[in-house]
Nucleic acid binder design. Structure first.
Lengths: 224, 224
DNA sequence: ACCATCCTTGACATGATGTAAGACTTCGCG
DNA sequence: CGCGAAGTCTTACATCATGTCAAGGATGGT
């Protein structure tokens, strides 16, 4: 039934290594703690992460060979989750504009859930995370290319560039949220509008005027 | 190379403190070494930087209170240099589209010269560099707002967002260059084209020959 | 030539990462 | 239930980067 994400980049046996229940619990706790803790404190130490997970630092090292390995596992897990969501959305059968919109929506939710991934992890991509990162980008590129073929998107810019540019815009939007200059809803609005515009989609509708600024307290990166 | 940038964020006296010639020489060597060394090795140690500058680690600390202070000085110097170039370009008198183009050009040259600034320094902005960074963005925002007022740019998106989005696109383009997926000229072409498009400027001309290619699907991440 | 300034050497403290060995606890299963 | 294995904890150690300090030598400016 529920297939657990299956431990990503570990250091022990290749994979199919059945682990004891408490081991899985520890791994899960570490991953969760790292996710939330690094979310608003990207340079937290292994000690702090371990403490937040309720284990010892050595236990962390028992499961993740290094700090980078932990980060990579985090990225891989999030990436796998997102790819799953994208696959489930069956975007390949939707018209390109719709597919792009839905892709943007899914991607943004990923960002909302794992703010850390944009702050630092993706800035200096640790080795090994390229694959997971490229998976999502490739899918996006496919959508864009399809839209270009059907004439829905402009062809002046190569699809490969547009894909990374859209991802870059997402980062920028997330940074604005973290900096407190936009709230999450505003950020998503301007981000998706910008992405569509970048792809040459004739601006669909009103960007949702911000005359009424709803103050939905959704900020996440409120570092001191 | 007329006037030296004047020591930026130092730890000693505010500024009016005349330094001995060899001190200035050391500072300059450190700054230069840090610039180039961090360019392709963003996590070089103070020791390495000092060595590259031909001084001792302690000498570096004699001029820069900390690693962050050194980074900040680097950013400030580059920022000041760029602001100077922008001011000299008298962009406020040009028509908005021209001003934006020239701005993009100047900004891109900054990126070309100081690749390090995008890699890491701007990712996790050290305290104190906000001012220098905001200076350039403010100027850009002014241009965009002016273009929106004159009707040259679209008004669907707020100028503040567009400014940071354009800067973000520059980062993305630079990353592509760093990753070897684009060369500098291609990157600049797609970047400037994208920025214009984002601002709603009717696409001026063909960026590249994208004549019905339909051939190979760009380069997709086929790692292993 | 003199003196303040600067550089250098060497040492020290701290904190984070990573490694290692032994004891203790818990899980899985017969 | 009880035993072995897997996992965790404690303690300890090694290493490296950052940052600080003090004393002595070199250099520049006037």
């Amino acid at each position: 039934m529920v297939k657990r994400v299956a431990c990503p980049v570990m250091n022990d046996a290749p994979e199919t290594r059945r682990r004891r229940s408490d081991a899985r619990r520890s791994i899960d706790a570490i991953l969760t703690a790292a996710r939330t803790l690094l979310g608003h404190q990207p340079d937290a130490s292994m000690e702090e992460i371990a403490q937040a997970a309720g284990v010892t630092r050595q236990t962390v090292y028992a499961h993740f060979a290094s700090r980078d390995a932990l980060i990579t596992a985090l990225i891989d897990a999030a990436g796998a989750e997102t790819v799953e969501a994208i696959d489930a959305a069956r975007l390949d059968t939707d018209p390109p504009v719709t597919a792009l919109r839905r892709y943007l929506d899914i991607g943004w939710q990923l960002i909302r859930r794992y703010p850390y991934l944009l702050t630092t992890a993706l800035a200096r991509t640790p080795p090994g995370s390229e694959a997971a990162h490229a998976a999502g980008t490739d899918h996006l590129e496919g959508i864009i290319r399809r839209g270009q073929d059907t004439g829905d998107f402009a062809t002046a810019l190569p699809s490969g560039w547009l894909a990374v540019a859209v991802v870059g815009l997402a980062h920028t939007a997330a940074d604005q949220v973290a900096a407190g200059r936009l709230d999450a809803d505003q950020a998503y609005a301007v981000f998706s509008e910008s992405a569509l515009r970048l792809c040459g989609v004739p601006v669909p509708g009103p960007v949702r005027d911000e005359s009424r600024h709803r103050s939905s307290a959704v900020q996440q990166g409120s570092m001191e």
